[in-house]
């Protein structure tokens, strides 16, 4: 995985609450056996109309959101299905961080494993971000800070290990494989076997 240390970008705001992974990428696009090229299906049924033409009302189609790498969602972003296709589609589209007041567990785990940064902020910072779309923010992963225009900076929670893996570009499978001796010992010594 490529290291992810700092993201500086304008924001695109999708204010709806409870954006689920079915909205991020509808199930009919999951019959793929690849993880590549899913960006074209990102928010498919919201972003595109029935003929595949961009819906001008949808924030990602606003010319101002061109090139934005930071998505601000409503409360409880990423709930629902465990599909990792959701972070794959966001990343492929060019989104590198998602900001909300709450980010669902499985989506957050999946994001971290792919270098998409989940940023949880307090309600007042969130309100500010919702009310001020297309502002330049600076996300510093090593310091766990989100800096707003004008220099106001807030800390966001991120698991220390996940942060280390992001910043150093470490693949967590490698870490698990280093534990193989302990895994074998566990298997040999456990009082019962499944």
């Amino acid at each position: 995985m490529e290291p992810v240390r700092r993201i500086r970008s304008r924001t695109v705001v999708l204010p709806t609450n409870d954006i689920d992974t079915d909205q991020i990428i509808p199930a009919r696009f999951l019959t793929t056996t690849s993880r590549e090229g899913l960006g074209k299906h990102l928010f498919n049924d919201l972003r595109l109309d029935a003929d595949g033409k961009p819906n001008p009302q949808f924030p990602l189609n606003d010319p101002a959101s061109e090139g934005c790498a930071v998505l601000v969602g409503g409360n409880n972003f990423g709930c629902g299905s465990s599909r990792e296709h959701a972070p794959w589609a966001l990343l492929d589209y060019g989104i590198r961080a998602v900001i909300s007041t709450e980010i669902a567990d499985i989506f957050r785990n999946n994001s971290l494993k792919n270098g998409l940064v989940p940023v949880v902020v307090d309600a007042s910072t969130h309100d500010f971000l919702l009310a001020n779309p297309a502002i330049e923010v600076d996300i510093d992963i090593s310091r766990s800070t989100l800096t707003l225009p004008g220099g106001k900076s807030v800390k966001f929670p991120i698991d220390g290990f996940a942060r280390y893996c992001l910043v150093e570009g470490i693949d967590q499978l490698g870490y698990l494989q280093q534990q193989m001796d302990r895994i074998r010992t566990f298997e040999e010594q456990r009082p019962w076997t499944p």
């Binding site: 499985i106 785990n109 999946n110 494993k113 967590q172 499978l173």
Partner: peptide
């Protein structure tokens, strides 16, 4: 509990997961 595809790979390869 449910996991993502990267974690499916972890379990296939090691039979273990990293969890808080």
């Amino acid at each position: 509990f449910g996991i993502g595809t990267t974690e499916v790979g972890h379990v296939l390869a090691t039979q273990c997961l990293l969890q808080r």
